[in-house]
């Protein structure tokens, strides 16, 4: 681990430590927040009890469904918009406004990737007498891949946001619903345990993707 990573770890640990001290010292009241160590303990208990297994499954299932739809339709939409520049120019303000929607995120990433395919690849394809489909699969897709990956990462993040927000409001199960339920019943222990669970889960997924992406990119960027 490099020096930067140690400093980063220190900053994060310092922040959590500060919260812990403030909570334990009473500067932050128990009704507002419980100490981070207690959140972790409560989370371990909650997971061990199996009480929220169904909700976890439901939320993850919804996220997976939303994510898959977003990536597939976003990619197709992006390719279509790229092929019709007039439609794209007309749709631009809409895309820019609603990119918190996972589907739009993927459209934008696809457009971005297709825009950055070097023009010389087209000429290379023609010197090899490649058909359009082969050019798309063998040259354009790998050339655009890093940008598509960015879209995939953001689509995961926004799928989580969308699913949890709608569970707060509309659902009768799922992690969002359970957090809202605990909040309404002043059950801070369960509430913070679940919040910690969601944030840790999303951060873990993001970090895993980040590491994977770095590994894929390393040779391509020559690092």
């Amino acid at each position: 681990m490099g020096r930067l990573a140690w400093i980063r770890l220190g900053v994060i640990a310092g922040f959590i430590g500060l919260l812990e001290i403030l909570c334990r010292g009473g500067a932050i009241g128990r009704l507002t927040m419980i100490p981070p160590s207690e959140m972790a303990a409560a989370l371990v208990e909650l997971i061990a009890s199996g009480a929220v297994d169904d909700d976890i499954g439901r939320t993850l299932g919804s996220v997976a469904a939303a994510f898959t739809l977003a990536v597939v339709f976003g990619f197709v939409g992006g390719v279509a918009l790229h092929a019709i520049p007039r439609l794209r120019r007309a749709a631009d303000p809409l895309l820019a406004t609603y990119y918190a929607v996972p589907f739009f995120v993927m459209i934008i990433a696809t457009l971005n990737g297709l825009d950055r395919i070097p023009r010389v690849l087209d000429k290379v394809a023609r010197t090899h007498r490649m058909r359009p489909l082969e050019t798309a699969l063998r040259l354009k897709l790998p050339a655009a891949a890093p940008y598509l990956f960015t879209g995939v990462k953001l689509a995961i993040a926004y799928s989580f946001i969308g699913v949890i927000a709608s569970e707060f409001i509309l659902a009768a199960s799922g992690l969002g619903y359970q957090i809202a339920y605990a909040y309404n019943n002043f059950d801070n222990r369960t509430m913070y345990a679940l919040m910690l669970f969601v944030l840790t889960l999303v951060t873990t997924i993001n970090m895993a993707l980040y590491v994977w992406e770095r590994r894929l990119q390393r040779r391509r960027l020559g690092r």
Binding site: P118, V120, K123, P142, A143
Partner: peptide
């Protein structure tokens, strides 16, 4: 006929 271009046309995703 083989063509070599001015721009870097190597494929960065292949060794």
């Amino acid at each position: 006929i083989g063509v070599v271009f001015q721009e870097d046309a190597s494929f960065p995703w292949l060794s």
